[in-house]
């Protein structure tokens, strides 16, 4: 059983084929990194997993996709998304809610916690898992704009975790934050895999090397190389993967 299983998946926007014959299997409780240069289709692949691509005009998906055991294309996307958290490239906490409320709202909406004590416990747990608790435990009533960019991104991770997802999607989560915060986020990602399956998109080979258990290299909408981190980072078999690892594409 895999958290995500795609067989011969093609995604079109209008007449243009964006994803081409994608076949990947993402094991549970692993960090699966999708690597590729700009425009290779990484984010589209990620947004396909929680069906955010449904919001793109003229999108058409063909192929067999199973996510958390469900047939993705037949399943209610709202139900599915209750089990899938997502963190975007740009930190996007709710600006009008406090740090506490930003995390608590996800747990409340998803029914993870109802009583106040339960909610407090979940908020603390999520902030700890996002490696933010120590920095904000005495200022939970502050607002996101009072945090640094890196802290805001970890707040978004905590918010995603508070809904207790089975699958967590991360779209270049460190792209806009400083190296210290990026490192903290990477450590959080690696430590989370016991509890949640993580699919992360990055164009940074070294970041992928630091966190990945499995890697897929995407180029022009195609998976040109995939396998264990050891295989891809030490013995890549395709010229495209080799160039990507060298930062040449």
């Amino acid at each position: 059983m895999f958290a995500v299983e795609m067989n011969n998946v093609n995604l079109y926007i209008g007449d243009k084929r964006i994803l081409k014959d994608i076949t990947v299997k993402i094991p549970y409780n692993s960090v699966f990194v999708v690597m590729g240069s700009s425009g290779s289709g990484k984010t589209t692949l990620l947004k396909l997993i929680n069906r955010l691509v449904d919001f793109i005009d003229g999108v058409r998906v063909l192929g067999d996709i199973r996510v958390l055991g469900f047939n993705l294309l037949d399943h209610d996307p709202y139900e599915l998304r209750k089990n899938i958290g997502m963190v975007f490239q740009e930190p996007n906490p709710f600006p009008h809610l406090t740090i506490y409320e930003n995390v608590a709202i996800a747990a409340r909406i998803n029914g993870v916690a109802k009583k106040r004590e339960e909610l407090e416990e979940v908020v603390k747990w999520a902030l700890e898992k996002a490696m933010l608790w120590d920095e904000v435990k005495n200022r939970l009533q502050d607002y996101p704009h009072q945090l640094s960019g890196g802290q805001r991104q970890r707040l978004c991770l905590a918010r995603a975790l508070a809904m207790k997802p089975k699958l967590l999607l991360l779209d270049e989560p460190t792209a806009n934050i400083d190296p210290v915060n990026a490192r903290k986020l990477e450590e959080a990602i690696v430590s989370l895999k016991d509890e949640v399956t993580i699919v992360m998109v990055t164009h940074l080979p070294h970041q992928a090397a630091r966190v990945a258990d499995y890697v897929a290299v995407l180029f022009e909408g195609k998976v040109v190389e995939h396998g264990s981190a050891q295989k891809v980072f030490l013995h890549p078999s395709t010229e495209i993967a080799k160039k990507l690892l060298r930062g040449e594409i």
Binding site: P205, A209, L234, P236, A241, K242, L245, R246
Partner: peptide, 9 residues
């Protein structure tokens, strides 16, 4: 240079 792949090997 933080080599990866063949360069690291």
């Amino acid at each position: 240079r933080q080599p990866l792949g063949e360069d690291l090997v």
